[in-house]
């Protein structure tokens, strides 16, 4: 194939990061998939291809329970995060005039503090002698500390929703910034009230951003394993914890990779569905 000069230069430039991604991402992925068809007995790795790991994963109750729970937690986290983020992004885009960069900077700052400590501090906030209980008791709203707010699924949801907030705000903000303000004036001139204008012009045009936020939050949260470990308690264990256990303590890497591949496929297909639905909604109204 004969490439133009520009194509050749572009390909030459991009080849180092591309090769790095092939070597460190694509190759390991292929390895993981291959690995998931092998089996392990204690220290011996049996390289005969088999579906045994997948059979064990899919027929076992634990995978199903944890996968469903992880998906449910991620759905909740995504919904809460995106719904709470939208007004902030709207506020930044439409009401903040000069200090947009400063606001964005302030939003991102807390997320550059240690990830582990941030999660740990939620434990401090939600704990028995924690900030929330102390505050509620100080206000005289409760007499005894509440003990049902930590070590469960809601604690995981709160912590993850907090951790992913800026990732939800930024894409929506960018989409809102791109909206041509004259369209809003046109809608108003044509007799739309603020609510109709929002629902018929602003929201549909912001949909690509909402969609991006949804996926950016949904995909990584399914695979989190630190948050459930620290604040989830026994009922908050997620799929990544299971993968990690098979990897380290149970020393069954092939089964761990089969679990990882299965969850990746599930998450990828759900993301695809979300993407298609989102595009359809966005496409129809535009």
């Amino acid at each position: 194939m004969i490439l133009s000069r520009e194509s050749r230069q572009g390909l030459t430039l991009i080849s180092p990061p591309f090769l790095y991604a092939i070597l460190m991402l694509a190759a390991p992925m292929v390895m993981v998939v291959t690995f998931s068809f092998w089996t392990q007995n204690y220290l011996d790795l049996d390289r005969t291809p088999t579906f045994a790991n997948y059979r064990e994963a899919w027929t076992g109750e634990i995978f199903r329970v944890l996968m469903l729970r992880s998906l449910m937690i991620s759905f909740f986290v995504t919904t809460v995060t995106v719904l709470l983020a939208f007004p902030i992004a709207y506020f930044l885009s439409f009401h903040v005039k000069r200090q947009k960069a400063l606001w964005l900077f302030l939003i991102t700052i807390p997320f550059w503090t240690s990830y582990l400590l941030r999660i740990f501090l939620w434990k401090v906030i939600l704990g028995y002698n924690g900030v929330l209980n102390s505050a509620l008791m100080g206000l005289g709203l409760i007499d005894e500390p509440l003990d049902f707010i930590l070590y469960n699924v809601p604690a995981v949801i709160i912590t993850l929703a907090h951790a992913w907030a800026p990732f939800a705000i930024l894409p929506i903000f960018v989409a809102l910034e791109r909206i041509d303000r004259s369209l809003l004036e046109a809608a108003e001139d044509l007799g739309d009230g603020p609510v109709r204008r929002f629902l018929r012009v602003t929201l549909p045009l912001a949909m690509p951003g909402v969609l991006a936020s949804t996926l950016i939050v949904f995909i990584p949260t399914v695979g989190d394993f630190v948050t459930p470990r620290l604040v989830g308690g026994p009922d908050g264990v997620m799929i990544a914890n299971l993968i990690q256990v098979y990897f380290s303590k149970a020393n069954n890497a092939p089964l761990a990779t089969a679990l990882a591949v299965s969850s990746m496929l599930i998450v990828a297909s759900i993301s695809l569905v979300i993407f298609l639905i989102g595009r359809k909604i966005g496409g129809r109204t535009q």
């Binding site: 950016i216 989190d224 890497a253």
Partner: peptide
Amino acid sequence: IVSLIMVPLILPEIIVGVSLLVLLMQ
């Protein structure tokens, strides 16, 4: 090409960690 380079941005880190570990072990 660009997507492959950018995809680690949204991949769960556990997947990146696990897959690199498997490759290194092999």
